[in-house]
Amino acid sequence: MTDQRFTELLGKRLAGEISPKELIELKELLSKSAEHRSEYENLTGYFNDEKPTTNNIDSVFEKIKQQIAVTEPKSIQNIEEPIKRNFVSWYRIAAVIAFCICSFAAYHFFIPDNSAGNNDIKEWKVLQTPSRDKSKIILEDGTEVNLNAKSQLKYPASFSGKTREVYLNGEAFFDVKKDPEHPFIIHTKHMRIKVLGTAFDVKAYEDDSFIETTLVRGLVQVTLNNKPAEKIILKPNHKFTLADKNSVNYTIVPLTYYNSKDSSSNSIMETSWLNDRLVFKNQTFISIARDAERKYGVEIRFNDEKKKDYTFTGKFEKESIDELLNALSYIENFSYKKEGNIIYIY
């Protein structure tokens, strides 16, 4: 029971949710156990070692737009040198160190999940957003949710029980109301995320091959449905990526800022959709196409499978779908045609 109480208090301490009385209790437990002191020092040192990470993607895309014939002037900016298709995916680079540290801390960090919060729910509601649209809702507990295009959120009209649980298909940004006694849990088809009070993004579309969780502040625990025994701890300003939904191999890397002079949350590339921006770095054409479908309300089909693997870097905000595709076609050799709401890439 002592070990379980220690992990509970440690989780609250790192999340900034511990009360003065609980802090005294934690100090007493630390004074009695060298093992607890060692774990406390390792974890607090890890979570306090914050180093700003800014990946600059300001550069030469202005030259590209000047050579593309479009009907309206464009405002493409802050784009890095284009990266060719044989470039290794950027988000894999920094995974090893973060993976090792998080794996060390993972299993003992949160208390076991033995609540049955859903049993007390009397009424469920569903919020859906179509293509080209976003929604914002404040849940009954004060949690704020921004729902991206082509997404669905299932939530209770009123939370009850020991936990606050919702279900997501698509992408949403959560700013969770602090309530240490009632953890907030987001369920997706392939994983769940458990938090205390925090701000983070979850991207879990059915038509994407990958799943992402981006943590802006606070503390979250990620559990894969295929590997429920492992509790993965995500550090603030980091991103968890499960590249293949059917595997258990994941990466944890720092967030990317598309403006090197702005390290605020408004410049985080992974949550750029909140500001109606389409931003990508060394991202595959097929992945960009899926995001573009949601932003522009179109369907993109590839007649040439090889072109799905092209990689691009760019930032688009007010540009049309034609301006986007014209810019990308200047970097890699492809053409497209539009038939109603469907765009064919060949």
Rank of each mutant, 00 (worst) to 15 (best):
K150Q: 15
A149E: 02
Q67S: 10
F61I: 10
D58M: 04
E41A: 14
N146G: 02
N118I: 09
Y107Q: 12
E81I: 10
E81T: 15
Y46I: 11
I68R: 03
T143S: 03
T163M: 00
I64R: 01
K125Q: 12
I138G: 00
W124M: 04
F109Q: 02
K150T: 15
P82L: 03
E140G: 00
A95L: 05
Y40V: 04
I68M: 14
E144V: 11
Q152I: 13
A116K: 09
P112N: 06
K125P: 01
I76N: 01
T53E: 03
A116W: 06
S151R: 04
A69D: 12
R37V: 13
I57A: 08
K154R: 13
G117D: 12
R92H: 12
I83S: 07
P130A: 03
A157P: 03
E80P: 00
N78H: 13
G142M: 00
P52H: 05
S38D: 14
Y46H: 14
R37T: 10
E140W: 01
W90D: 14
I79C: 15
L153K: 02
N78W: 06
I68K: 04
I121Q: 06
I93H: 10
A94W: 11
S103W: 09
P82R: 02
E50W: 09
Y91A: 00
A157Y: 04
Q67N: 12
D58W: 09
F109S: 06
F109H: 11
I76P: 00
Q77R: 14
R37I: 13
E123T: 08
P82D: 01
K134P: 01
C102R: 07
Y107E: 06
A116R: 08
S115L: 02
V145F: 08
D113Q: 09
K125A: 13
R37K: 11
I137Y: 03
D120K: 08
F99T: 12
Y40D: 09
N48E: 15
K122C: 07
S160A: 15
G45D: 08
S160T: 13
L153P: 00
I138R: 07
R164F: 01
N48A: 09
D113M: 02
S115D: 10
A157K: 14
I137R: 06
K65R: 15
L153C: 03
L127P: 00
D141A: 04
I121T: 07
N146D: 08
L153Y: 00
F99A: 03
V126Q: 07
V88H: 03
E39T: 14
P52W: 04
K65W: 13
A149Q: 09
P156M: 01
R37W: 14
R85L: 13
D58Q: 05
T53M: 07
N86A: 02
I137Q: 07
V88P: 03
Q67T: 12
E80M: 05
D133Q: 04
N148K: 11
L43G: 07
S131K: 12
A105H: 07
S158L: 14
L43T: 05
F47C: 05
A116F: 14
N56H: 01
F61S: 09
N114K: 07
V88N: 04
S158P: 05
G117M: 11
I121V: 15
G142P: 01
N48R: 12
E140V: 01
N146C: 03
P112H: 10
E123V: 10
N148D: 13
K63Y: 10
P73I: 05
I64E: 00
T143E: 01
I97V: 10
P112A: 12
Q152E: 11
E62M: 03
E62Q: 12
